[in-house]
Design a binder for these strands. Structure first.
Length: 154
DNA sequence: GCCAACGTTGGC
DNA sequence: GCCAACGTTGGC
């Protein structure tokens, strides 16, 4: 499957992923049950990820990543010093999950929200729907194709 | 199990 | 920084 992962670049950007050892990192800090369920149950090795920068300028798709490890417990939920610590979670009964992603490429230019809105093939895309805050979203094959052929990748 | 109050997300 | 829309919490 294909996915869109949202991140605030001030917290973790496509360039932070690129700089990570081997271009790989785990996608931590998801604390929403619907997004958690996707990470735990549906995101699989080999799946493609559109890396979306939110709450920034410019807002939009900033790159592509690849899932290299499927869901496992988010280590930050057990770390008292982490902002993502959850006192209700135990290693026996984890609550939150991560997957590992690997950097594939960054857009030469961010594909802006304004631009995405103008592409008719994307009119039902989850990220463009009003009020949707979900940070892990499924992307259809046709949406993936329409986005990955845009000139901003070159 | 309802729902008001509260906290968070994220575009603007 | 604002605030609408949403998700979560907790009293009842």
């Amino acid at each position: 499957m294909k996915w869109l992962f949202k991140s605030e670049p001030e917290t973790f950007s496509i360039f932070d992923l690129k700089k990570s050892p081997g271009g790989k990192n785990y996608w931590d800090g998801v604390r929403n049950y619907q997004a958690r369920n996707f990470l735990r149950d549906s995101v699989k090795v080999g799946d493609g990820v559109l890396f979306y920068h939110s709450n920034t300028e410019p807002i939009g798709i900033a790159g592509e990543a690849l899932v290299v490890k499927s869901g496992y417990p988010d280590p930050t939920q057990f770390d008292r010093k982490s902002q993502y610590y959850d006192e209700k979670a135990t290693p026996q009964k984890p609550i939150w999950y991560v997957v590992d992603v690997k950097f594939i490429r960054a857009c030469h230019e961010v594909i802006s929200l304004r631009k995405l809105e103008k592409i008719s093939a994307l009119k039902n895309m989850v990220v463009l729907k009003r009020g949707v805050r979900l940070s892990i979203q499924p992307v259809t094959e046709s949406e993936w194709t329409a986005i990955t052929k845009l000139p901003e990748w070159r």
